[in-house]
C-alpha cells in the first residue's frame, strides 16, 4: 500500500506546530499503525530528518501509552482497540491519513504527537485508592462480593488511562476516565469507607485541571478502547450529589501511614 500522511509536527511545548505531509510507501496491510509509522521514521532518520515522535510502549493495547487522533477519531476508525492494535488493513491503498495529537487544554503537546497526560495521574492521586497500608489486611475471602458486582467493578477497572475519552469528547471532558475509578472503588466493599470523600476529591481535581463538562454525548463511550460505559459517569454523578448534599464526609486529608 502507498499512503499520504498528514502529521502534526511540533518541536516542543513552546513552539507552534503545523501539519506536514509525508509519503508512506510499500506498507503491508499486516502492519500495525505504529509499525507503519516506524517504517516512515526509519526513512526519515536515514535522510537525517527527525523522526515523528509519538507515545507507545506495550503495543498490545493494555499500557494506554499510545494515542493518536487518526482521521478524526481517537485510536483510529475501529471500535474497542488502541492505535497499536490498529492494522493497516483497515485503510485502503492511496488513502490520505491525518494524524493529530490528543487536543485538550489539560493535555499540552510535548512534541509532535506526544501529549502530557500527567493531569490524569494527579486526578488518581487525589483519591483513586483505598487507604490501606501494606500488611495487616484481612483474609481475601473474608468479604464475599457478589459476582455481578465484582464483574461490573472489573469492567470499570479495565480503563487504561489513554485519554481517548477526552480526545473524543467535544468538550474535552475527562468524566469517563474519572468515573471509571470512582465506580470501581465505589462498587466494591473495600472502597466503601472512602466512597464519599473519594468522589469529591477526584471531581475537584478534575475540575482544577481544566477539563470540560460532560454533556452526555456518548462519544467517549463509543471511542473507549476498553468499552467503559456511560453508566460509570452516571454512578459518579449520583455518588457526587449524594456526597455533597446528603453526607457528612468532606474531602479528607489523606493519612497515608508513616509517622
Amino acid at each position: 500500500m502507498n499512503l499520504t500522511l498528514k502529521v502534526w509536527r511540533q518541536k516542543d511545548a513552546k513552539s507552534t506546530g503545523k501539519m506536514v505531509t509525508y509519503r508512506a510507501e510499500n506498507i503491508s496491510p499486516d502492519m500495525s499503525f505504529l509499525e507503519m509509522l516506524d517504517v516512515v521514521n526509519e526513512s526519515l532518520t536515514l535522510k537525517g530528518d527527525e523522526p515523528i515522535h509519538f507515545d507507545h510502549d506495550c503495543r498490545e493495547g493494555i499500557c494506554g501509552m499510545c494515542s493518536l487522533y487518526i482521521n478524526g477519531r481517537p485510536h483510529g476508525p475501529k471500535k474497542a482497540i488502541t492505535t497499536c492494535q490498529l492494522h493497516m488493513r483497515s485503510f485502503h491503498d492511496g488513502e490520505t491519513i491525518t494524524i493529530e495529537p490528543w487536543r485538550a487544554g489539560p493535555f499540552p503537546v510535548i512534541k509532535d504527537l506526544i501529549v502530557d497526560r500527567s493531569s490524569f495521574d494527579r486526578i488518581q492521586q487525589a483519591g483513586g485508592f483505598v487507604s490501606v497500608n501494606t500488611g495487616g489486611v484481612p483474609d481475601a475471602n473474608i468479604i464475599p462480593i457478589p459476582k455481578v458486582i465484582a464483574d461490573e467493578a472489573f469492567n470499570s477497572a479495565t480503563c487504561i488511562g489513554c485519554g481517548a475519552c477526552v480526545a473524543a469528547c467535544k468538550n474535552a471532558s475527562a468524566m469517563l476516565f474519572v468515573s471509571a475509578k470512582v465506580s470501581q472503588l465505589g462498587m466494591l466493599p473495600q472502597g466503601q469507607p472512602e466512597r464519599w470523600s473519594r468522589v469529591q476529591a477526584m471531581v475537584a481535581q478534575m475540575d482544577a485541571e481544566g477539563f470540560g463538562n460532560c454533556t452526555n454525548t456518548g462519544a467517549c463511550e463509543a471511542e473507549c478502547p476498553k468499552e467503559i460505559t456511560l453508566t460509570n459517569i452516571s454512578r459518579m454523578n449520583n455518588d457526587f450529589f449524594s456526597a455533597k448534599l446528603f453526607r457528612e464526609e468532606g474531602v479528607h486529608e489523606n493519612s497515608g501511614g508513616g509517622e
Binding site: 489486611v137 484481612p138 481475601a140 464475599p144 459476582k147 472489573f154 466494591l188 473495600q190
Partner: peptide
C-alpha cells in the same frame, strides 16, 4: 498468600464465584 489479601484490600477486582468468594 499475603499478596492476595493485600490486593483484594486495595480493591483489585479478582474473578469471583457466584458465592462471592475468589
Amino acid at each position: 498468600v499475603n499478596i492476595i489479601d493485600q490486593c483484594v484490600a486495595q480493591g483489585v477486582p479478582f474473578a469471583r464465584e457466584y458465592g462471592g468468594l475468589l
